[in-house]
């Protein structure tokens, strides 16, 4: 497991090894730790804007002894076949899941890029700039990655967050649906139905998803 302190130190060390500025986005457990929702995570999830940035990052973590590892047993078979699956690197207990441009079928919408919760810049000779997606986007991405504990993380966010913007989440899901993610609505609907056993969610949000699904 990676603690918040480990994560910060790791980013600091990586920023010393990179040879050009890199910009990426944090989601999943990494973003949750930046938020203060939890203290440790199994993996560091990062999304890069382009392949050269990911390559540069991989070069840096390889120098630190990280090796590529298999996605098997981490993601469901259907996700493993997706061409936008991540590259995974591991060293002892530390693991990186590195995506480019998309997280499986999910694109980064302009709104997601604009409405960041935080920006952390690790400045050395070059800068590693990490944008942290807002909580609604973290939930949205947790709903699609469907790994073990993802649902528990969603519950943690909702329990701790008084001002969770459900409309934002639904709007983003519909945006994904309209921009080619055929699974966005299905995954979200599945997650909300499961969530309803533990948390109150207004029916109108599910209805908006059904209506959008019928549109196509």
């Amino acid at each position: 497991m990676i603690t918040h302190e480990d994560q910060m130190n790791l980013f600091r060390i990586i920023s010393k090894s990179i040879k050009k500025d890199i910009e990426c986005y944090a989601f999943g457990g990494t973003a949750m730790m930046f938020y203060g929702y939890k203290d440790e995570t199994k993996d560091v999830d990062l999304l890069f804007n382009d392949e050269p940035s990911r390559k540069e990052f991989i070069e840096a973590i390889k120098q630190l002894g990280f090796n590529e590892t298999s996605l098997l047993k981490i993601y469901i078979p259907e996700k493993l076949r997706d061409k936008n699956r991540p590259l995974m690197f591991k060293r002892e207990d530390y693991r990186f899941d590195l995506f480019v441009k998309q997280i499986f079928k999910t694109k980064v919408s302009p709104r997601m890029k604009e409405d960041l919760f935080a920006i952390h810049e690790f400045k050395e000779k070059s800068t590693l700039k990490i944008g942290v997606f807002r909580k609604e986007c973290i939930v949205q991405l947790k709903a699609i990655t469907e790994r073990q504990n993802d649902f528990d993380d969603i519950l943690t966010i909702l329990k701790k967050e008084q001002n969770f913007d459900w409309q934002y989440l639904i709007d983003e899901t519909i945006w994904q649906h309209r921009h080619g993610d055929s699974w966005a609505i299905l995954d979200m609907e599945k997650m909300i139905r499961q969530l309803k056993e533990y948390h109150f969610v207004e029916q109108k949000y599910l209805e908006q998803l059904y209506k959008a699904q019928k549109e196509k």
Binding site: M8, F117, A118, I119, E121, T127
Partner: peptide, 10 residues
Amino acid sequence: WYDHQVHGIY
């Protein structure tokens, strides 16, 4: 409007 932090010389 977002939390900006710089870890290093700023």
